[in-house]
Design a binder for these strands. Structure first.
Lengths: 103, 103
DNA sequence: TTCTTACTTGGCAAAATAGCCAAATGTTCA
DNA sequence: TGAACATTTGGCTATTTTGCCAAGTAAGAA
């Protein structure tokens, strides 16, 4: 790995890192169904408004989502929808680890 | 998000988290070309032996790679190759952020 | 203009992560 | 057996991440 490679892999890893939090991943998947405002996520996720806002900022900074203010609300939508295409594969990984909902 | 959803998204996020480090992502991609022993990574990455070993342990714990000891060496290989299928998409994300090698 | 709604930002403490060093383990070779 | 090699583990510190609270901003309503 030379310096240029390091930069590229750092950039790629940052995109993955943005998706590697349960709340952020869940929100990104919700956006597959179309744009949502911040308040909708706050209601559904059950954490502080500021926490949701910061999570969305991470996804935005990574280039995964974009936002638009309309009136009092800010709507977020997927900028690069393919980012969730590989979820069936991720599911097969956790499947291979015999993940289940059991206690 | 109920308790079961939380568990599932935590598990999925863990797989992504395992890949969200430049060194681990690079190593996972190298494994697409076939198995490698730890020492090969140490030489290429330029970081401590113990650090490489710990990174590989993270990938293993996530279910992405598996290892096999043969003689003195431990070989790692991809357990779920599809995990890297979405890299072209990740590249399009960093492309959309106008990522380049420039300073 | 003031109030309320819908956010974002700054600050902080707790927890997790990264990478180094030193020590321990397991395997082959002399 | 003992030395050398390949790797893992434990321990430590520096850095990053997370999530809450409080304060700040922007837009529409009264």
């Amino acid at each position: 790995m030379n310096a240029k490679d390091k930069k590229i892999y750092l950039a790629k890893a940052n995109v993955l890192k943005a998706l590697s939090h349960p709340t952020r991943l869940w929100m990104a998947e919700q956006l597959e169904g179309g744009e949502r405002c911040v308040c909708e996520f706050v209601d559904a996720v059950g954490v502080d408004f500021s926490t949701v806002s910061k999570h969305l900022a991470v996804l935005k900074q990574a280039g995964i989502v974009e936002d638009e203010k309309r009136g009092k609300k800010v709507f977020y939508r997927l900028k690069v929808p393919c980012v969730l295409k590989f979820m069936s594969c991720i599911e097969s990984v956790i499947g291979s680890e015999r993940f289940c909902g059991c206690p």
